[in-house]
Nucleic acid binder design. Structure first.
Lengths: 181, 181
DNA sequence: TGGTACATGTAACATGTTACATGATTAG
DNA sequence: CTAATCATGTAACATGTTACATGTACCA
């Protein structure tokens, strides 16, 4: 019941629980598909946060259902804590980009190896961009009005991945290898 | 001395120690200024990793200098461990972007509050972009050949921040508020 | 001589990751 | 009946954060 400050992961779970009671399993799947691209979390974490939030009275375990699933419902205290959290100034983003370390220390990497690494990552980003663009193209008409928030996050992904590709394509041959086109 | 696998933070310290022996203090400053934009670390962590790497024989503490500073030098084992690490496939990046959570759950945020948050973050990114662009413009001629790696990471920052601004400017009024221009 | 910047280090805790153990239900 | 999938949970550990305690040297 103590008023420990919410962390972003726990708060997100509360966010999803506004829609309907869900089990840990459901929450993992929901979170990974809806915010996974900019807020990763694991199963362990979800069960941990649910247990902590239950202890704090922010969620309530419901009857076990099929296959032992244990849905949690958000409580009034949970709604209140979430409302407070979501209106707060969000922390600045953190980007941890190991590839950039490889590039930064590129002079210690054999040239072909570096080029291969870069090429592989470029491909990953190209694939992701294609996925996002397909999702964007598949949006039904009227979606922009109906769910502007989810669309904005999708557009973030598109903007980000396009920027990545632009960056890859502007890398000098020292890093990306001899021009292959 | 055990061959525990290097983590990216420790490896980066080794990367910088290739240039010259440095103390924990120096390493914090160096890392924050040279990789801080895509790989954050704290003082605590640096001292912890240095102690661990010293125990593993990857670095060696030197004589204490002025003001009790204790420089560390990389060892041959350290160079070897680094070379192996840096040529490995880097892990995918992780982005943790709390603002996107705020946006995703935007329907729970009062409209003016959401717009204010978004505007403030836009400004932060605009400032950062301006800084990066100033740095880029200030590069001496020939820098592209002399230090392509550091420049590539700077260009990453520019590409990223431009994408962010583009994204902010394309947000619908529901999120960014009534057009102010 | 007192404040500020330099410098090291520890402690306590929060968060994130990986691996495992266990059991329920369903599909073939 | 059995393999696959659904589902919960714990344990152990790695990493990241915040706060504090201590001491050194410079400079106004």
């Amino acid at each position: 019941m103590t008023a420990r400050p919410l962390n972003a992961t726990a708060a997100s779970l509360l966010g999803f629980l506004h829609e309907e009671p869900m089990s840990g399993w459901d929450l993992v799947a929901t979170a990974q598909s809806r915010i996974g691209d900019f807020w990763s979390l694991t199963q362990s974490q979800v069960y941990r946060e649910l247990a902590a939030m239950a202890a704090d009275g922010l969620v309530e375990a419901q009857e076990r259902g099929r296959r032992d699933r244990r849905p949690y419902a958000i409580t009034d205290a949970g709604r209140e804590a979430f409302a407070e959290w979501v209106a707060r100034e969000p922390d600045p983003e953190t980007i941890r980009f190991p590839l950039l370390l490889t590039v930064m220390f590129g002079r210690h990497v054999p040239a072909e190896r570096l080029a291969a690494i870069v090429a592989k990552h470029r491909q990953t980003h190209a694939d992701r961009l294609a996925t996002y663009e397909r999702m964007d193209a598949a949006l039904p008409p009227g979606a922009a009005e109906a769910e502007p928030y989810a669309i904005a996050t999708l557009r973030f992904g598109i903007a980000y991945e396009r920027a990545m590709l632009g960056w890859f394509d502007a890398l000098p041959p020292t890093i990306a290898g001899p021009v292959s086109s």
